[in-house]
Simulated assay, not measured.
Amino acid sequence: MVKAIRVRQHGGPEVLKWEDVEVGDPKEGEIRLKHKAIGINFLDVYMRKGLYESSPPLPFIPGMEGAGVVTAVGAGVTTCKVGDLVAYGVLDVGSYSEERILPADRAVPVPSYIDPVVAASVIFKGLTAQVLVRRSFKVEREHTVLVHAAAGGVGYLVCQWASSVGATVIGTVSTKEKAVQAKEDGCQHVILYKDENFVDRVMEITSGKGVDVVYDSVGKDTFDGSLTCLKPRGLMCHFGMASGEPEPIAFAKLSSKSLFYTFPALKAYTDDREELVAAAEELFSCVAKGVLRVRVNHKYPLSQAVQAHVDLESRKTTGSVVLIPDEE
Rank of each mutant, 00 (worst) to 15 (best):
V73E: 02
S121R: 11
V93M: 04
P111T: 09
Y88M: 09
S112L: 05
R100H: 03
I101C: 00
L91D: 13
L85T: 14
T78E: 15
G74M: 02
L85Y: 00
Y96E: 02
Y113L: 03
D105Y: 14
I123M: 13
R106D: 01
L102R: 09
A72N: 10
V110A: 06
G76L: 02
R135N: 14
G126S: 06
F124E: 12
G74L: 10
V122S: 02
T79H: 02
A75W: 00
G83L: 08
G76W: 09
A72R: 05
A107E: 05
V77W: 00
V133D: 04
I123C: 09
L127D: 07
D92Q: 10
R106K: 11
L85W: 00
P103A: 08
L91K: 15
P103M: 07
F137Y: 15
D105E: 15
P111Y: 06
G126L: 00
A87S: 13
L132Y: 05
A72I: 00
A72V: 01
G76R: 12
A129E: 13
T78M: 08
D105R: 12
P116M: 01
L91T: 14
P111H: 09
V117T: 11
E99V: 08
C80I: 14
V118E: 11
I114W: 01
Y96V: 05
V73D: 01
V90H: 02
A75K: 12
A129I: 01
R135W: 03
G94M: 08
P109R: 02
E98T: 05
V108H: 04
V139A: 12
V93S: 11
V77H: 04
T79N: 03
Y113T: 15
R134I: 01
V118T: 15
E98L: 12
A120Q: 10
V122R: 00
R134T: 08
R100S: 10
V122C: 12
G89C: 10
V77D: 02
A75Q: 12
A104Y: 13
G76K: 11
Q130N: 12
G76M: 08
S97K: 06
V139L: 08
K125I: 04
V86G: 01
D105M: 13
V118I: 14
K138D: 12
E99Q: 13
R134V: 00
E98Q: 10
F124A: 14
I123W: 09
L102N: 08
V117M: 01
A87T: 06
A75V: 03
V90A: 10
A72L: 00
R134E: 07
G126K: 08
A75L: 02
G89I: 05
G83D: 15
A75R: 09
G74K: 04
V139F: 07
K125G: 01
G76T: 09
G74P: 04
L85F: 00
V131D: 03
G74R: 05
E98A: 08
V73Q: 06
Y113N: 14
G94N: 10
I101Y: 07
T79I: 15
P103W: 08
V93G: 02
G83I: 13
R106C: 05
I114T: 14
V131K: 12
P103Y: 09
S121W: 09
K81H: 00
R100V: 10
I101T: 03
S121M: 06
A129P: 05
I114Y: 02
